[in-house]
Design a protein around this nucleic acid. Sequence first.
DNA 1: ATTGAAGACTTCATCAGTAAAGTTCGAAGC
DNA 2: GCTTCGAACTTTACTGATGAAGTCTTCAAT
Lengths: 186, 186
Amino acid sequence: MTAAAGSAGTPEELDLDAQIAAYQREFPEVDPQVEKVVTALGRLNRRMNVAYGRQLVDLGISNAEWEVLKALVVVGRPYRLGPGDLAKRLGLTPAAMTHRIDRLVTEGLVTRERDEANRVRVIVELTDEGREKWLQTMRLAAAFEDDLLQDLNTAERAALGEILIRLLRRVETSQPDAGGRLEDLD
Amino acid sequence: MTAAAGSAGTPEELDLDAQIAAYQREFPEVDPQVEKVVTALGRLNRRMNVAYGRQLVDLGISNAEWEVLKALVVVGRPYRLGPGDLAKRLGLTPAAMTHRIDRLVTEGLVTRERDEANRVRVIVELTDEGREKWLQTMRLAAAFEDDLLQDLNTAERAALGEILIRLLRRVETSQPDAGGRLEDLD
DNA sequence: ATTGAAGACTTCATCAGTAAAGTTCGAAGC
DNA sequence: GCTTCGAACTTTACTGATGAAGTCTTCAAT
């Protein structure tokens, strides 16, 4: 097998360096250092999502549902938000939110009721069971994250955090966001 | 409205620190430093995907199609892979791959033909037009990435790359991957 | 009081993904 | 040489997302 080709391996077999090498071969102008950072970032994130996904399966909820629970927890007591607001926070359409809420309601993790003060509005509220479920996910996630960063000492963690935030600031300012689609939100 | 709530803002309005604070409030055992790194990482990645997505729209292809082009380019000339192999590399099911290839074929970016040497196999090959399309995406992506990392000096870039790779190694070794679903691959 | 415009959510049609069954071809055994 | 097993891809049924149209409520202006 040549460089990173190969007949049919799991994705890990494609190691990072081989992939960067391929990019250089096909597109010489590329800066390997930049590409390395960007590729590692994307790959790391994917792995983490897979890991989260597995834990969620164990707890019997989907990633989609988890996002909703997180959003409700973040606003704090009494853990209420409208469907439209939730949709904006999670970066999906109101239509999708309607269905997600349907599922969560049937599982008893949130309640949906009309706002009596303004009957055009709907209030989605986390139930005790929903909050408990979130706590469970959080315990697992925190354990995974601690393990992930185990090899980094405090200084390294701080440096990493600082750099990531600088990058984040750069993207967020360069993109006014145009009020759109944001995949998901933690 | 309390803390980071708000009526209905775009996601950016929820700044990172407020979100971390919310986690600490709701789940005191959490390590804020760890959470900060993890949250920033997730958020950064999301922003980057949005940015890539916009560029792709301008070029008239979807993120899904882009992934396929990348995979074919990475293996090098003659830019050929079977649907099953592609599916593994991109972390999706063969069924999904079938449909993606359908779309790419109608757009003229790849060809699909039976392997005459082994007629149960199918060969997907990048067309010149497909390669050209990939080059265009690469030019845009590289420009965006260079801009993103502009605030980091060489030493910082190296440090970031090194740390990310350490983290990546940790996730990849701790998860044998179980041969499964990997969202996507760059 | 009535009408009109805008906002918030839901419904409908369509699209892309998964899981599982189906099809076709190649290879190994009797 | 026929048959059976297995591999590679496609097809089918279903799920969850999008975008556009629809419904219901509120608010402002006649």
